[in-house]
Design a binder for these strands. Sequence first.
DNA 1: ATATAAAAAGACATCGTTGTCTTTTGTGAG
DNA 2: CTCACAAAAGACAACGATGTCTTTTTATAT
Lengths: 146, 146
Amino acid sequence: MILSKSFGYALRSIIYMALMNDTKRNVQLQEISDELSVPHHFLGKVMKRLAKNGVVDSTKGRTGGFMLNEHTLSIPLKELIILIEGDALFNSCVIGFKKCNEKNPCPLHYQIVEARNKMISTYAETKIGDLIIPNKAELLKSLLAA
Amino acid sequence: MILSKSFGYALRSIIYMALMNDTKRNVQLQEISDELSVPHHFLGKVMKRLAKNGVVDSTKGRTGGFMLNEHTLSIPLKELIILIEGDALFNSCVIGFKKCNEKNPCPLHYQIVEARNKMISTYAETKIGDLIIPNKAELLKSLLAA
DNA sequence: ATATAAAAAGACATCGTTGTCTTTTGTGAG
DNA sequence: CTCACAAAAGACAACGATGTCTTTTTATAT
């Protein structure tokens, strides 16, 4: 597993909300954690982070919950990854060398640079919205498969 | 950082031993941990694992130490990674779905499959010995850079 | 034989991620 | 205005990766 659980929770939650947007104004934590089989309070922390950083909107109180905003689906996966788990995946050496670059390459540097760049550009170019396929049934199924 | 520290320690140790093979029959843990600035006892556990699995040879006692064998340098990185940190990098879904495949893809599956396969084939095709460049000075420098 | 020194092994500490539980804050329903 | 209820916040537990320290095993130099 390359990406963190937290990121997986965040991504699935956003996609779930996108699916539910047709029928509901907002979606509550309870519903998301129930549907995606994710720990309620842990997801709460993840969603709080998303809300604080404008990835989603949130309201408290009796009819509170989370909702997507105009930016949400155009956010690149790379940005979401960095928001949730930091930029180590993109900025640090594969084997953790502090100073690893062209001038001072780690033993693996040149061998993996191509695959690494491919991965980075994939995450940079793919937006969350790109994951929303037209087939809603299949998409929903893919969210629950965990 | 994608790969574990343990793997980095293992890889660097093996390359270091390859460099020293010209002059010494075996290399002791103390020397490796000193040269690579790696915790002595933690590295001991990593090396023990390598020795137990035939990646390197080891002898105890007064003149003991570790040495490469005829297989060491032809081992693919993928094999070494799996030996040290398991096969999660290669066999589990990027966001940790238990059942993620063509029939039951996670939301990210199709978007990252190309980059993922590129990474997997790189690690599968690159052997440890491929990292041993002729320029010994530069290679040694790259080992210590951490 | 005995002492020495090295790998091997095992107990325990630290730290980040993940997960649980409780308390606080804020908002709309009534 | 007050209550109900949801997000927000914070304390703490579980777990794996990493790291430290001590003890055991084993080979060999003397």
